[in-house]
């Protein structure tokens, strides 16, 4: 009986395999790619628990347990890095999140189609400019001697400010330029949600003689509230993942106090100083926290909407 069942599963499997052989053939290279480039590095995370030396390799390096984690959390950097990472995300969320919503409401109220299209198209543009160029513009605009911002301050009779070397400006620069880069593109989804609202709601409101302000407040905002909620939760889930590139390109040793985030620290320790074990441990700590946040956010969204990314 059991034997027969076993035989049947085997037969079924063979039959399925024969039927799907071309699908397997297609998928095989991708499977291999995923194993090599995504799953092997996950295996490589054991480095976080080793005194890793590239000469000895993964299997012969000495196992040191949680040494690197203890070292990291015992250092003054742990607090600073987590604080900077969280604060940069949090400020980006607080200042960056409402702008696309406000912009979407305004854009959809523009009655002149040509103006509306132009404003919209231009607003997406910064999203497609590379981080290097964006940071290049920021640095040159803020430059002490010949940047436009300081030229303007000087024109008004003010004192030139060394924005890029003063830690107290870093987050402002990062967040403000981040809003500039993303508000237009982020607004697309809200615009679609607003356009999708049933026009009869507005028509009946008009008959009741409601003002435009009230219309936005009592119809538009409640109707796009689900979209807002979902996007807010997803952003909260990314609170521990600050994009490496922009911080890396924008910061300098003088502003590490407010600018250095976990990913840039891992880069310096791992790639520049070759402290593989230690930096892998720090990176792993970040990955795990990230995973928990994103997973949690996804679960909450799932509960709210019965859809999920998973």
């Amino acid at each position: 009986m059991v034997l027969q069942k076993k035989k049947m599963t085997k037969e079924r499997f063979l039959k399925a395999f024969k039927r799907d052989k071309y699908l397997y053939l297609l998928f095989l290279p991708i499977l291999i790619w995923y194993i090599i480039f995504c799953y092997l590095p996950m295996g490589g995370l054991v480095i976080a628990f080793q005194e890793f030396s590239p000469g000895l390799g993964l299997f012969k390096s000495k196992f040191v347990g949680f040494k690197w984690f203890i070292q990291f959390f015992g250092s003054p950097f742990a607090y600073r890095l987590v604080r900077n990472t969280v604060l940069i995300s949090l400020y980006s969320l607080v200042f960056g999140f409402p702008v696309p919503i406000l912009f979407a409401v305004c854009v959809t109220e523009l009655r002149n189609t040509a103006i509306r299209k132009t404003v919209q198209t231009v607003s997406y543009l910064p999203h497609f400019i590379s981080t290097v160029v964006v940071v290049g513009m920021i640095k040159n605009f803020l430059s002490m001697n010949d940047g436009i911002i300081n030229n303007f301050i000087a024109l008004l009779g003010g004192e030139r400010i060394n924005f890029l070397m003063d830690p107290k400006y870093f987050r402002t620069i990062y967040v403000a330029s981040g809003v500039w880069q993303s508000f237009g593109y982020s607004s697309i989804i809200y615009i679609a949600a607003i356009v999708g609202i049933d026009p009869s709601l507005y028509e009946s409101a008009k008959i009741d003689g409601i003002t435009k302000f009230k219309e936005v407040w009592y119809i538009t905002v409640p109707m796009i509230a689900p979209t807002i909620t979902i996007l807010f939760i997803m952003q909260l889930g990314r609170i521990m993942s600050v994009g490496f590139e922009k911080v890396f390109l924008l910061y300098s040793p003088g502003v590490y106090e407010t600018a250095d985030v976990i990913s840039t620290y891992v880069y310096r320790k791992g790639i520049e100083s070759s402290e593989y074990g230690f930096s892998t441990a720090v990176g792993l700590f970040n990955s795990v926290i990230n995973f928990l946040f994103v997973f949690g956010a996804n679960q909450v969204c799932h509960k709210l909407t019965n859809t999920s990314l998973w």
Binding site: Y34, I36, F37, C38, Y39, L40, P41, M42, G43, G44, L45, I47, P54, S263, V266, Y267, G270, I271, Y276, S279, T280, G283, L284, N286, S287, N290, F291, V294, F295, L309, W310
Partner: peptide
């Protein structure tokens, strides 16, 4: 889907 949530991180990938 899993690799969208969790990955080996910079150093293991770099070494690979």
């Amino acid at each position: 889907a899993f690799v969208m949530y969790f990955h080996g991180g910079l150093i293991p990938t770099y070494l690979l």
